[in-house]
Design a protein around this nucleic acid. Structure first.
Length: 564
RNA sequence: GUGCCCGUAGCUCAUUCGGAUAGAGCAACGGACUUCUAAUCCGUUGGUGGUGGGUUCGAAUCCCGCCGGGCACGCCA
């Protein structure tokens, strides 16, 4: 729960602030607003551990040279009871802070004490948040878009959980509406074709072309024969859909489980109709005057709530749209189940849904800020240098199962979380298969395995690897040791930023940074064979490194193997 | 046509919501295992940040125009 980086930042901010006040009192500087002091970690190591740019920011306001301001502030800073060792004015007017190594040593002690809890915080203050993701159509297998959404959504949920939110993961099952009818029609066609021959029954123009539909039909025939051959078409479709839907759902469920994604709740769209929630929401919107009729349809005045255009709630054939049940669904999320915050993940092709959903939530009297809709860009698959279409209709879609089989769960999850959600993602299947051993995830896992192996050997030599509490950490003095320790100190901050921005991709990058610094350390410094006190100090460092890697990989739901 | 996302090294991507000399990985090249895992490390090469303006102490980042790519604009979900 401790965040030493935060502590250091506050120390520096306070020091600068009181130094500035003192400078004003002494008449050295004029007064202006410095409520926002940014404390940054410079890119270049020579620029110190932290830097502050306040001198340049206020230079204009008080009409002084920024370097002069910086020098004055530096002179007034009191270093007592802080980690600050020295300060320098550099460049156009940066104040660079060099810290005593203690802050890194203290970070190691925090890690050793908090272990698996290291990096968690109470940022969320126990608020209830729902993350709804994947929510794939149950009419077919999971595709690459679902794979990306699954990896992203699960990590966001993990990060929020680590940040003190009470998290619920939910999968919205679209078991109602148009696509289910299409599903039934497609199944019927395949069923009849297999009984009577391809030409005997036309396949619907916009039906699902996938092989899986044929397989469902075949399996149904295996189980129940031709009992639907002479049935009424509507009944035939219904029966086939009711047979195949649970089969698909079971497959989706187990596929996601293999992927390391488990939902707390599977919420049925159909249940919203059965429980009358869709009707109630319609009545509510009508009573509030948010609807009107036009061309035989019922419309929602989304434009009254900041959306670009109005939307149909009830089609002129009397059937509600998907949007209507989704409004009921969100009423259920916010009002019935009382989530403080709801996060939905949608592929970029569902972008059009964002505006109207926000408008709908607004119309329900819920602050739209409580709903976050994350749009992730689509995945483009390449195979043999060409774009492989991922449409379910082509029948050649690459499924999540295929992906896990080809590149492995860990690599897939890591890969999908390496990129920010807003960036387009090209997935070259040939490359992923061929280079799976070069995937960055192994770099991280290898670091962990190396440490475990090292500790095992030390243990065999009679070293008590648990006995590091009293290690003399000040013996860690080389650049490699300190850089690694300082990087480990940043972990709670990384988690916090990920939670705030709902962007876990920074964690994979951080994991790579930690691993790189560890590998460098490993090549520069030895643990086994060093003099006892130094060995103990380095063992402590290495144990902390393994702990942090475990914590990150835990958040990413990726294995941390003890040997490779 | 309108809206959103994207454009950074040969390739895939970063750049900590305006900072210092734009960084990694892969690929290429040169080195390092008799010692804790070489799935590693060290080094070299590689850039008019799509393009043209603007804002300011300072722009890859913010604003405007243009070019190129993706997505959406349905009484589908």
């Amino acid at each position: 729960m401790k965040n030493i980086l935060e502590t250091v930042r506050i120390q520096i901010k306070n020091s600068v602030r009181s130094a500035y006040s003192e400078a004003i009192e002494k008449g050295l500087l004029q007064k202006t607003d410095i409520s926002e002091i940014a404390v940054e970690i410079p890119r270049e190591r020579e620029h110190g551990d932290f830097s502050v740019n306040i001198a340049m920011q206020i230079a204009g306001a008080i009409k002084r040279n920024p370097r002069q301001i910086a020098d004055i502030i530096i002179k007034c800073v009191k270093k007592e009871n802080t980690y600050i060792d020295k300060m320098e004015c550099a460049g156009p007017g940066f104040i660079n802070f060099y810290l005593k190594n203690d802050w890194a040593y203290d970070a190691l002690e925090i890690i050793a004490e908090e272990r698996a809890q290291y990096g968690t915080s109470d940022l969320g203050k126990g608020k209830k948040v729902m993350v709804e993701f994947v929510s794939a159509n149950p009419t077919g297998p999971l595709h690459m878009g679902n794979a990306r959404g699954g990896a992203l959504g699960d990590c966001i949920a993990n990060v929020l959980q680590a940040s003190g939110y009470e998290v619920t993961r939910e999968f919205y099952v679209n078991d109602a509406g148009n696509q289910i009818e299409k599903f039934g029609m497609s199944l019927e066609a395949r069923y009849m074709q297999q009984l009577l021959g391809e030409s005997a029954f036309p396949f619907p123009e916009d039906g699902y072309m996938g092989e899986d539909i044929k397989e469902h039909a075949k399996e149904y025939i295996n189980l129940y024969g031709d009992k639907l051959l002479n049935a009424d078409s509507a009944e035939r479709q219904k029966e086939l859909a009711e047979y195949a839907l649970p089969v698909n759902l079971e497959r989706i469920k187990s596929g996601l489980k293999n992927y390391g994604v488990e939902f707390d709740n599977w919420f049925s769209e159909q249940s919203l109709y059965q429980d009358g929630e869709v009707d109630r929401i319609l009545k509510y919107l009508k009573d509030k005057g948010h609807t009107y009729e036009k061309d035989g349809a019922v419309w929602f005045k989304a434009s009254d709530f900041g959306s670009e255009k109005d939307e149909v709630l009830i089609r002129n054939n009397g059937m509600p749209t998907y949007f209507t049940s989704d409004i009921a669904y969100h009423y259920n999320k916010f009002k019935k189940r009382r989530f403080d915050r709801v996060i939905n993940l949608l592929g970029a092709d569902h972008y059009g849904h964002v505006g109207r959903m926000k408008a709908a939530v607004n119309a329900l009297g819920i602050e739209p800020e409580r709903l976050d809709i994350i749009i992730f860009q689509l995945v483009r698959l390449y195979r043999g240098g060409e774009i492989a279409r991922m449409s379910k209709r082509t029948g050649r879609a690459i499924t999540l199962e295929d992906l896990i089989e080809e590149v492995g769960r860990d690599a897939a999850r890591f890969y999908f979380n390496m990129k920010t959600s807003g960036s387009h993602l090209d997935f070259d299947l040939d490359l992923a298969v061929k280079q799976s051993n070069e995937n960055p995830v192994y770099y991280v896992q290898y670091a962990h395995a190396r440490i475990c192996s090292m500790m095992k050997l030390l243990e065999q030599e009679g070293v008590d690897i648990n006995d590091t509490d009293d290690a003399e950490l000040s013996l860690l003095k080389t650049g490699e040791e300190l850089s690694l320790a300082e990087k480990l100190a940043q972990y709670p901050d990384e988690i916090k930023t990920s939670a705030e921005t709902l962007e876990p991709s920074r964690l994979t990058r951080y994991a790579l940074d930690v691993s790189a610094l560890f590998h460098s350390f490993y090549n520069a410094c030895r643990v086994k064979g060093e003099e006892n006190e130094l060995m103990k100090a380095r063992l402590a460092l290495v144990k902390c490194t393994a702990q942090v890697i475990r914590n990150i990989l835990g958040v990413l739901s990726i294995n941390a193997p003890e040997r490779m």
